[in-house]
């Protein structure tokens, strides 16, 4: 144990950097994915059929493809097209596109769960459709979506570990580099695992407390 703690002390900065990278990429992906998901979810419910189809295709392709394949695609395809994306950017893009599809799909479900009387009540007082969306539908749909949205965040934190495959210096890759120097394989993998777990439990608790706060009002 002492030997592990001594090695951990030596490796503290690289591991901390990796941890921050994991959080940063996940945060970037959830922000991008949420914005994208809102657009996608709204289109899936309210757009005319011809416009709905491309969004439907996007969601089904993203949800049907393994995350690692998406990450590799985001890393290699832009390079082939002559765009230069850093590995971290490509990884964030892949995770964001993945999250956008999941959030879009869950927002679609939440929007469709709202009784049609809500739109009619909004119309009858003279709200335009965008106003109904912003003031009546989205506040209710986002509330229903909150628990699975948090879950998507947890998936992103875990999924970000796959970015080690394209050389992004996030927690898993940094941990592997440290293990390469001190050969304390089990100890450092367990340590990284505990860090992932702590973040995800914290997210879960945050979600539960938000849910309770919102739930109390309904």
């Amino acid at each position: 144990m002492d030997a592990f703690l001594a090695q951990l002390w030596i490796a503290r900065w690289p591991i901390f950097d990796g941890f921050l990278m994991t959080l940063g990429i996940s945060a970037g992906a959830i922000v991008f994915g949420t914005i994208l998901g809102c657009i996608v979810g709204i289109q899936l419910v309210f757009a005319p059929l011809w416009l709905r189809l491309p969004f439907r295709a996007y969601v089904d392709i993203m949800r049907g493809t393994p995350l690692l394949v998406l990450i590799l695609a985001a890393f290699y395809i832009p390079a082939v097209l002559g765009l230069s994306l850093s590995a971290a950017h490509a990884g964030t893009l892949a995770l964001g596109l993945f999250a956008g599809a999941h959030i879009g799909e869950l927002l679609r479900g939440s929007l469709q769960a709202i009784p049609p009387g809500q739109i009619e009540a909004g119309r009858s007082i003279g709200l335009t459709f965008p106003q109904i969306l912003a003031n009546v539908l989205l506040p209710q749909a986002l509330r229903i979506s909150l628990p699975p949205w948090i879950n998507t965040g947890v998936e992103l934190i875990k999924g970000s570990s796959l970015l080690s495959m394209i050389g992004v210096g996030e927690l898993l890759l940094k941990t592997q580099e440290v293990i390469g120097r001190n050969f304390m394989t089990i100890q450092f993998y367990v340590f990284a695992g505990v860090l992932y777990l702590v973040v995800n439990i914290a997210l879960d608790l945050l979600g539960k407390s938000m849910e309770r706060r919102l739930g109390a009002r309904q």
């Binding site: 009784p115 009387g117 009619e120 009540a121 909004g122 009858s124 007082i125 003279g126 209710q140």
Partner: peptide, 18 residues
């Protein structure tokens, strides 16, 4: 704009729950 000139009260209330 024209809908705002009439008010409507529904059988199922349709209040905004949030």
């Amino acid at each position: 704009r024209q809908r705002a000139m009439t008010g409507m009260v529904f059988q199922s209330f349709n209040l905004f729950p949030h």
